[in-house]
Each structure stands twice: as C-alpha cells, then as structure tokens.
Write a protein that binds this DNA or RNA. Structure first.
Lengths: 151, 151
DNA sequence: GCCAATTCCTTGATATTTGAAGTAATTGGC
DNA sequence: GCCAATTACTTCAAATATCAAGGAATTGGC
C-alpha cells in the first residue's frame, strides 16, 4: 500500500462524512420548516427545471434512484397535488410528470430557504476555494461515471 | 440571490452526486466480491481501529447512523460470528462490541480490495489536488459540525 | 404487416433506515 | 442512601430504498 492509497482513503472518508452531515442538516431543516424531505425536494427541483415535464425514467436517472422509488415518490406527490402525471402523447408506455401551480408555489418557497441554508454552509469557503472544490469534484465524478481499469 | 449563492448550490449538487456515485460503486463492488455492504464494512472498519472494542453508542456516532440501526447491523454481524457483544464490566447498560478472529480476517480481505478501489478512483487527481480537496472539505465539515447563525 | 427484442413503468417482496417510545442501569443533588 | 434526571440500548412501526419479475407499448428486421 502506497502513501497515496492512504491519502485517498482519508479523502474518501472525509468526502463521505461531509456530504452526509450536510445532507442530514438539509433534510432535517426541510422537515422542520416544510414537513418535506430531501428526496422530495430533489425530485421537485428537477421538475422545476423542466417546464415540459419529465418522464419517470428521466427522473430516476437525475435523482440517482431506482425506478420503483420514483413511482413511490411521484405517487405521494401526486396525492398532495404537487405534481400531475399524464400519458405521453407520443409513447403510451411513458408517463410525463409535471409540477402543478401549487407545486411550483410550494417548491419556490422551499427553494429559497434551501438556497440560504446552502449559501450559509459554503460561505466558510472563499469563492476561489469553491471553484477549486467544484472543479476537482468534477474530475472524480467523471471518473466514476465512466469507470475504467487501473492499468 | 447573489451569484455566490448559485455557485454554492451547484457545488453542493456536485458534492452530493459525486459522493453518491462513489458510494454506489463501492457498495456494489462489496456486494459482488464479498456479499457485503458499505454500512457493514464501515462498522467493521471502526472496530478494526479499536482493539478494545466500542460501545453501541460510539459506533452509531462514528458511522453516522441511528442507534436502532446499529442494533440491527450488530445483530446481523453477530449472527455471522464476525463480532461479539459483551456487557461492559463498568457499566451494565453498555454493550461492548469487538471483532472476532474471523471478523478480523474477513475485514482484512475486504479492506485491501476496498483500498484499491478507492485509490483507483482518486488516482485521477494529483497528490496536490487530493490534499487541496481534503483541506477544503475539512472547512465545510467543521462548519456543519458546529452550525452558527449567518450573521 | 408480423414477431421477437427492447423499453417504460409498476408491482410486490425485501432490505434498510429512521424516529419515537420503552426498559434497564447509572448518576448527582440532597 | 433515595429519587429524579440522565444515559445506553432495544424495540416496533413507519418511511424509504432496492431488486426482480411482469404487463403494456414500441421498434426493427424481415
């Protein structure tokens, strides 16, 4: 085992811990202030960016979860009238999910608070630090997206 | 909303995505090669570092999960004879969990593979980049550990 | 046009995690 | 020493996630 291996291991542990702590803080704030959760928020955020709606499969790819889970989440959000589901006119297998007006309003309120929480957390870093972090995480992300052998 | 807010949001999304992708890759590799999972591995890793064992509460703090979940995980690992559980001699409320010999052996095999996988993933970054990432994540982590108001 | 392969989604069984409530043991103020 | 408060852990139900199997619709080769 080289020194680099140990350093990489420590880096991964820190990456994991930091992300988990931030995630938890956001999730509990969403619960407290809006009686919602992070997975629900993430799903709504994807829809907000897609005025024409998204298919179930697109949603599950974007929020990194399984299809079954998306079915479950959408059913709950639909029951609360925050999203609608319609059969695609061009492909009757596909369901297209959209935000309702109420959904947009609800999301907008959460998004504003959410953004403040995040800005607050990352304000400890300088803009340069944030850019540096963003760029390097991008390298790791690309690596994991398209894994290749060690050679 | 300032530009910095948007940048922070993007940074958070990337942090989350990257971590989730790495996590998933490790978890599925552990399943494939050792029929184990990341939470189990993490728990064993904590015990490996603590020759005198750890109490349930210490375990749940260190692996960032709830007490109920640790009870569940330890019960499963105990059934597989990878860990033992004894009542603390000094505090009869407390249970002390330790690795068995079989547990140590099992963990050692997994740890080696695990380290390679991680080294492989982070090898795309230079040593300097890894240090920079580690340091900046530390700032964020400390911030989340001890939250304070925005001022 | 027809059929096998594929795609999109849902379902149902399981697995995992959380959160709240409960039990047992310890501690500290008196 | 005694009792209220605290601490350590477990339990149980509910929330959330995965996985494999299945049904309906579409596509592409012929």
């Amino acid at each position: 085992m080289s020194t680099g291996d140990l350093e990489s291991l420590r880096l991964w542990l820190r990456l994991f811990t930091t992300t988990t702590l931030v995630e938890r803080q956001l999730d509990s704030a969403l619960k407290r202030e809006f009686s919602s959760t992070l997975p629900r928020f993430d799903l709504l955020a994807q829809l907000e960016r897609a005025p024409d709606g998204l298919r179930m499969g697109e949603l599950s790819e974007r929020i990194l979860t399984t299809g079954g889970n998306v079915t479950w989440l959408v059913r709950a959000l639909e029951a609360e009238k925050l999203v609608t589901r319609r059969v695609s006119p061009t492909d009757r297998r596909a369901a297209i999910v959209r935000l309702t007006t109420a959904g947009k309003r609800h999301f907008a309120a959460m998004a504003q608070a959410h953004e403040h929480w995040i800005a607050d957390i990352f304000a400890t870093l300088s803009p340069d630090d944030r850019r540096a972090l963003h760029a390097r995480l991008g390298v790791v992300k690309d690596r994991v997206r398209s894994p290749r052998s060690t050679t």
